[in-house]
């Protein structure tokens, strides 16, 4: 993989981890304020001394974050848009099943891999709104000093804004899955797509996929170098 690609993935992991984990009951009424409020509170949760020493987000901390996800992130909207037009042919049960398993997959991979807050700085640039859709631009300064463009797509429902997509360096979560879903739906059916997503989740849970070696490696590095590399 070219090193350029790494930036994308890093920004996606950052963006999705933080937005997936939005954890606060207070409700903002503007797109940018919604994102900012959520990210700020997530950072607070991630820095909560209660969970200090954990290698990865797990157990109580993960539960706490997941319990409030729905307040800010609209997984149904993300799933529907990733599927696109065929979504209309899904039965309500199929829609629900796909949303649930897709959400689990994203949590397991992006959120489960997130090693915690390393001093990444969010700098909110601007918001744009058009009807019930909005777009918020931010720039994230990663712990190694690299600047990543992380943008959010939002939708207004019942007078509230929900994030439904994260765009890291020009690539959105929704778009990454669009072709994959389309491919599976072309060769299979909604049920086979749901089956595939569930299979993937099961694989990861069974440890068939790669373990969390990154967290271990970085922990080893941090013990030798307590301060995050900034230069």
């Amino acid at each position: 993989m070219p090193s350029a690609m790494k930036r994308v993935i890093l920004s996606l992991v950052l963006g999705l981890s933080l937005t997936c984990a939005l954890a606060a009951p207070a409700l903002a009424d503007a797109p940018l304020a919604t994102v900012k409020e959520g990210v700020d509170k997530v950072i607070a949760v991630l820095q909560d001394p209660q969970y200090k020493g954990a290698k990865v987000i797990a157990g109580k901390q993960l539960e706490a974050l997941r319990a409030v996800i729905k307040q800010y992130f609209d997984f149904t909207e993300l799933t529907a848009r990733a599927v696109g037009r065929p979504w209309l042919k899904f039965s309500p049960q199929q829609q629900k099943d796909l949303v649930d398993s897709f959400q689990e997959l994203l949590e397991k991979t992006y959120l489960g891999k997130f090693e915690g807050y390393n001093g990444e700085k969010f700098d909110y640039q601007k918001e744009m709104a058009q009807g019930n859709l909005a777009f918020v631009q931010s720039q994230v300064t990663a712990s190694d000093g690299k600047i990543l463009a992380v943008n959010f797509r939002l939708i207004q429902k019942d007078g509230r804004w929900f994030i439904y997509d994260v765009i890291g360096e020009g690539i959105s979560i929704m778009e990454i899955y669009r072709s994959q879903f389309a491919q599976e739906l072309q060769n299979g059916s909604p049920d086979s797509l749901i089956g595939k997503v569930r299979q993937r989740v099961a694989d990861i849970a069974a440890g068939k996929a790669v373990a969390d070696e990154k967290a271990v490696l970085n922990d080893a590095a941090k013990q030798e170098q307590p301060t995050a590399a900034k230069q």
Partner: peptide, 16 residues
């Protein structure tokens, strides 16, 4: 060595 885990995240989270 500074980026381990990123490729894994992208490929693991994918159905293809």
């Amino acid at each position: 060595s500074l980026r381990i885990g990123e490729y894994e995240t992208l490929t693991e989270s994918a159905i293809d």
